[in-house]
Design a protein around this nucleic acid. Structure first.
Lengths: 348, 348
DNA sequence: CTGAAAGCGCTTACAG
DNA sequence: CTGAAAGCGCTTACAG
């Protein structure tokens, strides 16, 4: 539309060379006071800022980051992304957001298309959260694409570590939250504790399930497969998984759910089958979402500090972009937030 | 990191000029079959794709869009954004996401900084949803920045129309949903209907409040200011606004809330004050969020079809980018989804 | 159909 | 401190 002004015109009008204008703009090399003043006046007159494309083309830095994640409508990812984008903006970076999963039940689209897109756009670094990365079985095509990606730019991958992929891996989950949840439910007297939600074949689900099984085994009751009802991460999944659990007629008095979406779905299903949480079923969830303090009942859940985690992840990425090899991988211990859904507030 | 391959190298290895490779890559101009084959082989060998920066610099099209919105953790925006990004990706566009509001209670950051960022990055078009745009009082600085922005690239602005700003304005709200909600509550026998949530001074709040007042006036009972309790759009706001309403000791039997976050907060506040929804208070909300079918009680709310709306908005933007002047502004009538929160399922 | 050349708007050695 | 020049990796008239 409007013909935009360029550094050449600024130079002409200021009576200096483009090189000097460039130096003024970048502020690294000293420029004499009088030229500085002249340039500044012209720059201000036109409200000039340099073309980031031209700048990126020659300097090999675009001040641009890419984030690839499954589903921004999932509060877990939204919270992390928001923090990532905020910190990035503070450092002067713009960030692309690429979703790979759009509707509950739909197959996710291929992430590697985004890899290509981001490489072409010459982003300075990429953050991948979950998705194919988090599958227990990685396809060779995905691994190859990831290799290629991380060979050409810094990649921070939040999820399961893939040996030899050349990314900086950050693990967000070690299952300790589930252990805490299990033990807390045990301490309230529960013996038959079910596990609800999460997609089989995904690392985070398997990790949490593993912790659950270990805790169940340690409790002396042993692992009971009929108390495990997997599905996926959304509300309808929680609903269905809870219904499936109920239909088995296996006795249970408590459940651990994969996240707060699943928890809401499960609570709803229980209610529709005449079971009240926490009166009939105690519930503890993972990945505390923003609404957890306001549901009926308030959720008791494991807080994974996703906001702080997002900050840490983006800082790691920016450091990698800026050439640091240091691997500032601080982890935050998950924290049990007591609400009402496990019924402990009813006890004395 | 890895030195990337360029069109020049592809040309050399294929034994053709860079111009021919470029033509092959763009597929617009015919290339002879044998050269095509040779180039194709080399391109495939290196898995070559052109540098989007260089391409954008010369062609003036970056295949990049910018989205500026208040808060991606708000399900309303997340749903819209997701649809925008999906459609954009289908058309080959990458999209930047810029948040302006990060924490409940924090002041939003200045959007005009993002305007600059997006202009520098030479995005092909920008979508602005809400934020300062939606304030009843627009600051001169904002208006000037918006003018400048829309003078240099296509801008689709979802929110209140600002005369002379040069944007394509799309209105998402005419208050008719609130009218529907009010009338429905009336038909259930409610006389004292309150309005809860929403930030004063924001167009969407004022528009809905206006509809509420009109409906109240039309009902014969008149507008009662003590039944209006504004605040903001988040859960804690719904909670506080509901508490404020209760504390006034003005009788009411039903409420209309600004959105489903506010609804959840309000329901929670009512519960904490011994009021059950829908037994003691009937509730209808706006901006149906994804969890509305799973809360206790299930929410009755006005569905604004934000997914379809997002599709329409991004298509309008892409058309504008591609030079269309047509203003494909289809609107979807809001739809009342009956859940349980207004208690109609209890009546016979 | 095709190549040589100009040019997009910058940055950065290089030589003063 | 400063300018002329080369160059980033492409596209696109222009002339065949």
């Amino acid at each position: 539309m409007k013909s935009t002004i360029t550094i050449t015109q600024i130079a002409q009008e200021s009576g200096v060379s483009v090189a000097t204008v460039s130096r003024f703009l970048n502020g690294k090399v000293p420029v004499s006071a009088d030229k500085k003043a002249r340039i500044e006046a012209v720059v201000r007159k036109y409200d000039f800022t340099p073309n980031a494309l031209a700048r990126g083309l020659i300097s090999k830095r675009t001040m641009t980051l890419g984030v690839i994640l499954p589903d921004i409508t999932n509060p877990y990812f939204a919270t992390i992304f928001q923090e990532v984008q905020r910190c990035a903006a503070e450092e002067g970076y713009s960030v692309y957001l690429c979703n790979t999963r759009f509707h509950h039940g739909d197959a996710p689209i291929d992430e590697t298309g985004y890899f290509r897109m981001m490489m072409d756009k010459k982003v300075d670094g990429i953050l991948i959260i979950g998705g194919q990365l988090d599958m227990v079985e990685i396809t060779p095509a995905y691994k190859e694409a990831l290799n290629k990606l991380s060979a050409s730019l810094p990649v921070v991958a939040a999820g399961r570590e893939i040996p030899g992929a050349g990314c900086i891996f950050i693990d967000s989950e070690n299952g300790s939250g589930v252990t805490t949840a299990y033990n807390y439910l045990s301490s309230l007297g529960h013996k038959d504790i079910a596990f609800v939600g999460g997609q089989p074949g995904v690392t985070i689900t398997e990790t949490r399930l593993e912790s659950y099984k270990k805790a169940a085994a340690a409790s002396g009751r042993g692992v009971r497969e009929d108390l495990i009802s997997l599905s996926d991460y959304y509300l309808p999944d929680g609903y269905q998984a809870a219904e499936a659990l109920i239909s088995r007629n296996a006795p249970f008095t408590a459940v651990i759910t994969m996240n707060d979406n699943v928890a809401l779905g499960a609570i709803r299903a229980f209610a529709d089958h005449g079971l009240s949480v926490p009166r009939d079923v105690a519930l503890i969830s993972c990945d505390r979402f923003y609404f957890a303090d306001y549901t009926i009942p308030r959720l008791t859940s494991i807080h994974h500090h996703s906001r702080r985690w997002g900050q840490m992840v983006v800082r790691t990425l920016i450091q990698a972009v800026q050439g640091s090899t240091e691997n500032a991988r601080i982890t935050f211990p998950p924290e049990l937030i007591i609400g009402e859904s496990c019924g402990s507030h009813l006890q004395h």
